[in-house]
Amino acid sequence: MPRILGVDIPANKKIPFSLRYIYGIGPTVSDKLVRMAGIDPDRRAHTLTEEELNKISELVVAEGHLVEGDLRREIAGNLKRLQAIQCYRGIRHRRGLPVRGQRTKCNARTRKGKRKTVGVQKKS
């Protein structure tokens, strides 16, 4: 399995697809990188030479794409900033509720997680 950008080990899929296993690289960036590196997009990842792998990682840096740890750190930093200044978005993040004004009466399960029952049990 080829290694690229430190930890990542894409499989024996075609290169544009295996690159997407890197955190921070999606279809658009992946296609662009392959094109810029001048690699045939139909080749499988394991057929890449050391040189071509290096070329791709250089391109990622040169194009200014944040990837893996750096990207995660940036995102965490953004959240931290919002929470530190006590703004509305920060508060919503802290409480694990939707941030962009969605309704929470029902749905919002992605943010709220698994349903937990709250409420009063009526006395009989």
Partner: peptide, 17 residues
């Protein structure tokens, strides 16, 4: 953004009957 307009006081506690 720094002056919340809603105040959530929490739901009524789950009482055992």
């Amino acid at each position: 953004e720094f002056a919340p307009t809603r105040q959530f006081k929490g739901h009524q506690p789950h009482t055992k009957r």
